[in-house]
Amino acid sequence: MTYLGEGWDSTAVLVGGRWVERRPRRPEIGPQLLRESVVMPWLAPLLPLPVPVPVIVSEAPVVVRHELVPGEEQHALNAVQGRQLGEFLRALHAAPVAEAVERGAGPRRLPIARFRAEVRVPGGEELLARLDGLPADTLVHGDLGPEHVLGRDGALTGVIDFGDLHVGDAAIDLAWALHSTSPEFAGALAEAYGVTRELRERALIWHRLGPWHEVLYGNDIGDPEVVEVGLAGVRDRLGVGVTHG
């Protein structure tokens, strides 16, 4: 086995050079991994890029395993990759929601009360208020960022980490892609996906909210450095001074 690393939710090792084995870092993540093993075999054939398709190795403790998705994290994304990701997201967001719900995907409740208690920022209430009334009618990846988009030789080779897959606002999957990437990549993605002005504005709301989750996670694990990184992100994206609980 080769240790691959750990995210917020799970640890991963490479088995036999081919299989990625994942274990939850916290008890509440176990059901999330089991849900992936039900949803992803149905979803994968609908998508134009490779994605993990976990199978259950053990339920007590929870262990799942899937074939290694090829490629590496990309640090300089190009227009070809932007078009690929735009087409990928268009296909994902067209997946039948009712069928996803039947397999265990559902809405995700945002920790609004914790946001208010643990991140106090001028303008924060206005941002949180903008979350009211956003659509929740699309199957979304839910945590799409550079570490989850893999590529090689100038093209994308896969998208990973569907632990936050849920029924929500399509704009959440466009937050990083439209607002934290190069104009070349973002423009090609927007054209391939068919991004509207209203969708772009909603994506900016989700982009600004992203670091708030990092503050909560840092508090959960008792790591002040993670909290400070999250707060720096809040400051950067809102352009205001911040205090936290």
Results as ranks from 00 to 15, higher is better:
G123I: 06
D9S: 15
G5M: 07
R90L: 13
L43I: 10
G158K: 07
V226N: 02
R116H: 06
D169E: 09
S58K: 10
D164T: 09
H141R: 02
Q32G: 02
W42C: 06
E201C: 04
A136H: 11
L34A: 04
D143H: 07
A60C: 03
A79S: 12
I172S: 13
I56F: 09
H148E: 05
G222A: 09
G168W: 00
D223L: 01
A171L: 03
V121M: 00
R25T: 04
Q84I: 00
E102G: 11
I112R: 03
P107I: 01
E147I: 07
P61A: 14
V64L: 02
G222K: 10
Y3V: 14
A155M: 10
T2Q: 15
D173Y: 00
T196V: 11
F88V: 08
A105W: 04
R116Y: 04
H166Y: 05
I221C: 05
A190G: 12
T2D: 15
E228W: 12
R116S: 04
R25P: 01
R208L: 03
L178V: 03
V229N: 08
E228Y: 08
D153K: 13
L178F: 03
W8D: 05
P107N: 01
V13L: 10
G154E: 12
V62R: 04
A171K: 02
G151D: 11
R108W: 08
L209W: 11
A79P: 01
L216H: 08
D137C: 01
A95Q: 08
F162N: 05
V215H: 07
R65E: 12
G86N: 05
V39L: 15
V167P: 02
G210D: 14
V64Y: 04
L131Y: 04
V167M: 00
D164M: 02
S180Q: 15
V20H: 13
E59I: 02
I29Q: 08
P50T: 08
P183W: 13
R235K: 15
D220I: 00
D164K: 01
G5D: 12
Y3T: 10
G218Y: 08
P31E: 00
V159I: 14
A177M: 06
P41V: 11
L199A: 10
V159G: 01
A117N: 05
E21A: 11
F88S: 06
D137E: 15
G218F: 09
G154K: 06
V227Y: 06
P70T: 06
A188N: 07
G239F: 13
L165Y: 07
W176R: 05
E125I: 02
D173W: 02
G124K: 01
R23Y: 07
G245K: 00
E99T: 05
A76V: 14
D143A: 14
L34T: 03
A60F: 04
P70G: 09
G71M: 10
R202P: 01
A91V: 03
I29H: 14
E59L: 03
I29R: 15
P224A: 04
G239H: 11
P41W: 13
A129I: 00
W42A: 05
A100K: 01
V55A: 14
P24H: 07
P41A: 10
R26K: 14
A117I: 00
E73N: 06
G222Y: 11
P41S: 09
A94C: 05
